[in-house]
């Protein structure tokens, strides 16, 4: 296991289903924390509600497991009151994009100095697989039994537009790249947003012919395209396959940030 010092080993195994990508994202985050050399008494993990938000409960550090959608608002309070603490927020697509959408864009706008890791499984997993704002159009879930009729949010692009200093997207399959992106996000002053497309074979895959874990991984791998390749294809006017999402670093800039350690 990665970073054994950072796990509450008395709480493992965690509650995630077999094949869930969230555990992988915890590994990558803690590997990045170790690389940063952060200490336990200067690191706070904050989360909201949902599968993703159970993550801080397995991490041996101060952690705040809050109400649905409000993780970023709580984290803003923590960071402003104690700028010397490193704040990492775990959130999910429902938590961040649906109920917490307002807090998300405002935290990006303020450019709060924190690292936000969104485990985007494109579904409400904890409640049993209901359609979320990131469920792709046409995808099935328990509340979109005839296929989702709504367009989905692109969270990383939203963060870029709202002003985050660092934005990247990877999948829970790309563990090395993801760890590097999280580390870079932690090093960047200001709001760092890392969207992780995670597999949810239990609730997303089940309704979308991706019930087997390798199928779900193959789906993520097959639809991920590096942003540079994507831009090149666009430039050359070549067709981009349907359902493709970009991965890689989408923004790195130096807007003025709030809550940076003085």
């Amino acid at each position: 296991m990665i970073a054994p010092d950072w796990f509450r080993e008395d709480r493992l195994p965690h509650i995630y289903c077999a094949g869930c990508g969230n555990g992988t994202v915890i590994n990558c985050t803690l590997a990045a924390v170790e690389e940063m050399g952060w200490k336990r008494n200067e690191t706070v993990f904050v989360s909201g509600i949902g599968c993703s938000s159970r993550a801080p409960g397995y991490i041996l550090a101060d952690s705040l497991h809050t109400t649905h959608g409000r993780a970023l608002a709580f984290a803003t309070g923590v960071k402003l009151a104690r700028p010397d603490l490193n704040v990492v927020v775990f959130t999910g697509d429902g938590d961040l994009a649906a109920i917490g959408g307002n807090h998300f864009i405002h935290a990006c706008r303020r450019n709060m100095d924190m690292t936000v890791i969104c485990m985007n499984n494109q579904i409400y997993g904890m409640t049993g697989g209901q359609g979320s704002p990131t469920t792709p159009q046409g995808a099935f879930s328990t509340t979109t039994p005839y296929g989702s009729s709504e367009p989905a949010f692109d969270l990383a692009e939203l963060a870029v537009a709202a002003g985050a200093n660092y934005v990247a997207r990877w999948t829970s399959y790309h563990v090395k790249e993801l760890t590097k992106a999280i580390t870079t996000g932690m090093q960047t002053p200001g709001f760092a947003f890392i969207e992780v497309r995670t597999q949810c074979p239990t609730n997303f895959g089940r309704h979308n012919k991706l019930r087997q874990i390798p199928d779900m991984i193959e789906y993520l791998r097959g639809h991920a395209m590096h942003v540079k390749k994507y831009d090149r294809l666009l430039e050359e006017g070549k067709p981009i396959p349907e359902g493709t999402f970009t991965v890689g670093e989408l923004a790195r800039r130096n807007r003025p940030a709030m809550g940076v350690r003085r």
Binding site: A73, F74, T76, G77, V78, K79, H103
Partner: peptide
């Protein structure tokens, strides 16, 4: 001290609770 005008009251009380957990009177 720190004053922040949050995006709504949900966020205001959330930020206050977050700050209170750092030991700050909020």
């Amino acid at each position: 001290g720190v004053f922040i005008s949050m995006e709504d009251e949900l966020a205001s009380i959330a930020a206050v609770i977050g700050a209170a957990w750092t030991g700050t009177r909020a």
